[in-house]
């Protein structure tokens, strides 16, 4: 039986007066890759940001409804924001390593959460870089500035950085849209590997990508989820006409 990791119910979100999500329901299961697809401005990135409350940083952003992680409402007042974000990691569209050494990038999260011992940090850095499939490429350059490596490598450093705090869930907001095809393939392969240990939610513009790697897909349109289903199902026998139009490339 699948374990439900995240449950979103009747989630509405406003940026000022603009309603970006109109009451969205969504279920995300453990150790699966859930992909969000849909045209630009349809609310996919907005929804993924509510899952670790990054939308708190946006001024005039207001929400209604519930988001539960392991059965607990993450918008309740009791929730420690920093703990939540430790459990729900995030990788962004543009690789954003800090202008520090590769080592310090990876060690930043663990240090933030109180790990000081050099030997512990060394171990975490190596493990995270291995998990992100970039250890062999950078192991001799750990003290190099993380901005000096290629974009694809930077993105994997960012994934390693997110993994270093040992999250349960990994949110990825179009993680490959700024990368070349080879780097993209590497990251896709990596993501499929990672779902063994993590629950992954991924926004993508690229429908092939969603169909290649995800287990479930949610199709967004104008702030609503039109359809969510097993990826195989959604791409071969969509229930809604709009979904079919979108995946067959009639708009988008």
């Amino acid at each position: 039986m699948l374990n439900q990791k995240i449950k979103v119910r009747d989630l509405k979100l406003w940026y000022g007066k603009f309603e970006a999500l109109h009451g969205v329901d969504l279920d995300i299961y453990e150790n699966e890759i859930t992909a969000f697809i849909g045209p630009s401005g349809c609310g996919k990135s907005t929804l993924i940001k509510t899952l670790n409350r990054m939308n708190d940083l946006v001024e005039n952003c207001r929400i209604e409804g519930t988001v539960e992680l392991d059965g607990k409402d993450i918008y309740s007042k009791k929730v420690e924001l920093n703990d939540l974000r430790k459990r729900v990691g995030m990788v962004f569209q543009q690789p954003n390593p800090f202008p520090k050494s590769i080592y310090d990038n990876i060690a930043f999260g663990p240090r933030t959460h109180g790990i000081k011992k050099k030997s512990d940090l060394d171990e975490i850095v190596e493990r995270s870089l291995r998990q992100a499939a970039i250890w062999d490429e950078v192991k001799d350059y750990l003290d190099r500035n993380a901005l000096s490596i290629s974009g694809g490598q930077q993105q994997r450093i960012c994934i390693a950085r997110a993994l270093a705090v040992e999250p349960d869930v990994l949110l990825m907001d179009e993680p490959t849209s700024a990368l070349d095809p080879i780097s993209t393939a590497k990251i896709e392969e990596l993501v499929m590997e990672l779902k063994k240990d993590y629950t992954i939610v991924m926004v993508t513009h690229n429908m092939q990508q969603a169909s290649r790697i995800s287990d479930r897909t949610a199709f967004f349109l104008n702030g609503d989820i039109i359809e969510q289903d097993l990826t195989r199902q959604l791409f071969t026998k969509p229930k809604e006409e709009q979904t079919e139009n979108y995946i067959s490339g009639r708009f988008g």
């Binding site: 920093n82 974000r85 800090f98 960012c158």
Partner: peptide
């Protein structure tokens, strides 16, 4: 945002 997302 990168730092915030790590729980800092």
């Amino acid at each position: 945002s990168g730092s915030i997302a790590l729980g800092a």
